[in-house]
């Protein structure tokens, strides 16, 4: 989910001759500059974890009140 599958790495462009497939961003990755995170992959997993937690809390909320 957080990264495209490996087979898409470095997809070349048919005309422009530059990498404009999903691998393009990965090759030019920069550190997120967020305390506690060294890679963007870590940031994405954190956000995904928060999302799962939100859904669980909403399910719990439904169970308590509905």
């Amino acid at each position: 989910m957080t990264q495209p599958p490996d087979e898409f790495e470095g997809v070349p462009d048919g005309r422009a001759g530059v990498g404009i497939g999903p691998g393009a961003g990965r090759r030019n990755d920069e550190p997120p500059g967020v305390p506690g995170f060294h890679t963007w992959r870590g940031v994405y997993w954190f956000v995904f974890g928060c999302f799962v937690l939100m859904v669980l809390l909403l399910a719990l909320f439904t169970r308590v009140y509905a």
Binding site: P4, A24, G25, R26, Y44
Partner: peptide, 8 residues
């Protein structure tokens, strides 16, 4: 979008 679209 963050991982694929924006970098391109």
């Amino acid at each position: 979008v963050c991982a694929v679209f924006l970098p391109i």
